[in-house]
Design a protein around this nucleic acid. Sequence first.
DNA 1: ATTGACCTTCCAGCAAGTGGAACCCCTATC
DNA 2: GATAGGGGTTCCACTTGCTGGAAGGTCAAT
Lengths: 139, 139
Amino acid sequence: MNIGDVAQLSGLPAKTIRYYEDIGLVKPLRSANGYRSFRDCDVHKLAFLGRARALGFSIEDCRNLLKLYEDDHRTSAEVKQIAEMHLGRIDQKITELTEMRATLAHLVNACAGDNRPDCPILADLAPKQDENALLDQPG
Amino acid sequence: MNIGDVAQLSGLPAKTIRYYEDIGLVKPLRSANGYRSFRDCDVHKLAFLGRARALGFSIEDCRNLLKLYEDDHRTSAEVKQIAEMHLGRIDQKITELTEMRATLAHLVNACAGDNRPDCPILADLAPKQDENALLDQPG
DNA sequence: ATTGACCTTCCAGCAAGTGGAACCCCTATC
DNA sequence: GATAGGGGTTCCACTTGCTGGAAGGTCAAT
């Protein structure tokens, strides 16, 4: 199969598939004309990668998951560990974003959004008087 | 003030401050010896940037917010618009992550995490039979 | 004179691709 | 045979927001 067909089937852009070959995630054969020639197993791998990336796994995680996927002697504990690590990172990210969201929503709510210059958002971002005092006064 | 002091005060790494100068966010003076010389207004800007970045605003957003911050003729509507856009992006990101989290938590939960190879996580990532059928059979 | 802590510039690299240029290949049509 | 189109190929640059390191200049103290 040529790259265009694989792109259609896997939903991954051809550019991304070439990139994945570049970094060694897939190793398609080559036809006599130099075109990449994808076997079913390559297509399976790409579908796997697409799913894993959609779940937010990093490329390095994907590489390791793929290795386990193809290793008959893997243990589910190895797979679970990667997934749990990733889950932890997602939770942390969600926590960060939720905190940002709260602050920001509060500020947006407080802002009149009219044609006057006074703005609680800028007021919050600007250094406070106390902080300036630290800068302006020696000691 | 030298960059080290400003780094201490603002909490931003010196490298980051140099980078912010590079991309035109601050324009410190230079001392005779070539060292950057930061005025109070530069330090204020950097503190502003630090806060804005901590709220997740992009550098381009920061650039615009800074411009508004320094513009006496700004309107709070302009500021609010940037913040609302950003809030929207955060909400979208939270939604994505929450969906990932749900799927992933479900899979992790279903995985025994023992020394056997069977793993619902890999099973979920692997292409399904139906999908393979599309590939294996001429359509 | 020399240490050590500063500061300077520039160059490379991270994740995970994306866009574009310049070029080759294959088929179909005129 | 020429040409148009729609594939494919490589390589290089760019994205975001820094971070690390090398090679070297400056300054205060010993």
